[in-house]
Amino acid sequence: MNVARKHLEDAIKINPEYAEAYYKLGLLLKKEDQADEALEHFQKAVSIREDYAEAQCELAIALTEKGEHEAARNHFLNALEINPSYADAYFHYALLLVELKDIEEAKNNFDKVTEIDQNYAEGYYQKARLLNNPDDFEDARKNFETAIDIRPDYIDGHYYMGKLLSGGVATSKEGSIIDRTDLPEAKKHFLRVLELDKNHSKALYNLARILSREEKYKQAHECLEKALKINPSYSKAHFLFAHVLTELKASAKAKTHFAFSIEHYEDNAPAHFRLGVILAESGKKREAREHLQKAVTLNPEHAEAHYHLARILSTDEDPAPAKKHFFRALEIKPDFALAYYRLAHHLERSGDLNEAKV
């Protein structure tokens, strides 16, 4: 690399107007993570030759990385004006448009990429990532499939195909929402990811989610242990591990992992709720109350959290707070029979007999 760099620097000394040498040296500096120097050389190449499409594109990419989005946009457009069949320029311009939240225009540019080069796996993959509405399910699936057909070892392609199939919400021809979840197929893709990268913690987590839904808790436990060994701060994995441990009747360990889940993501309403329930069941009412209060603060529509909080509050001298949370639980979930039952008892104990009868 240093020899190549020296030759290019020598070429520039001999001919300071040698645009191709500036461009090639910029690419070498980019590979060496010398972003500022690389940008300067791309700028020099473009200043010497404005019609140098590759240099315009690389300059645009460098400017994007520096956050100079409007300047980057201009240089991508320059590159595409010079060479309207430049697939890489369309691709990187589309990535910039995603960053700028111009999703529809980004889709159009990814389409242009795959029109020009039908073997551009990343183009199909990135387009699929943008197709996240129920109406787009089949198109997303086809684009992921094409990316994987082109590159069978495409880790991200397999991973996000697995994600799509494990939560397959789609729209029918009649416009109604239908469930296209295909867990066996999703599982194949997550397993393929793990063949290619055994330390892919997210694939282990998502595989464990499927195994948990299939009630294969011991296998899920094994996957989650590996995921957490790789990434000990993975809040979602701690939460799912705690759920699996609960199903395996290991509530003491479950409590620890619900707490870890919260430690790594404080605003985790489901973890606060589940930990609050475990603490209440073990008689730790004060700690349980804190977590359940946090759960309803973070998610005011959580009927069960309101219910369990009301049960703890029902032992207080003031009956009003418990009553409020029982009523809130029933407002959210009108068919919550147990909440009606507990509310009636609470009202009866507090002397509100007429309302208890209602």
Rank of each mutant, 00 (worst) to 15 (best):
E68T: 09
S176L: 06
L313R: 07
G276D: 05
E263F: 11
Y120Q: 00
V193S: 00
E81L: 12
L292W: 02
D318F: 07
S166A: 12
D156K: 04
A11I: 11
S201W: 01
Y159R: 02
F137C: 07
F190A: 00
K24H: 12
H306P: 09
K249L: 02
L353K: 15
Y93R: 06
L196W: 01
T181Y: 02
L39Q: 06
L298P: 05
I278N: 00
A237V: 02
V46R: 01
F91T: 01
D149C: 09
I116H: 04
D318W: 06
L196Y: 01
K202M: 13
A89P: 02
E138T: 15
L164W: 11
K198R: 12
A71D: 14
L275W: 08
K255D: 09
I312R: 09
A320Y: 06
S176F: 07
A237K: 05
A288H: 02
P270H: 07
H238Q: 07
S235C: 10
E17N: 12
D352C: 08
K229C: 03
E290N: 14
D117Q: 15
F239L: 02
T64L: 11
D102F: 04
Y205L: 15
K218P: 04
Q56L: 14
P319N: 12
T256S: 06
A339D: 09
L338G: 03
V277D: 02
E17G: 02
L59N: 09
E9C: 03
L194Y: 00
A53H: 04
A55M: 10
R151K: 15
S172F: 04
H302Y: 13
P334I: 12
K6M: 12
D153H: 08
Y234F: 15
K249G: 01
E104W: 06
P300H: 10
V244K: 01
A288D: 01
A208D: 03
A271R: 00
A89K: 00
F327I: 07
P152I: 01
S47K: 12
E281C: 04
K6I: 08
H221Y: 10
R342W: 11
Y217S: 01
A280H: 07
F241S: 03
Q43M: 11
F336A: 13
K107S: 11
A344E: 15
E331Q: 15
A227Q: 06
R129Q: 12
T171H: 02
A305V: 05
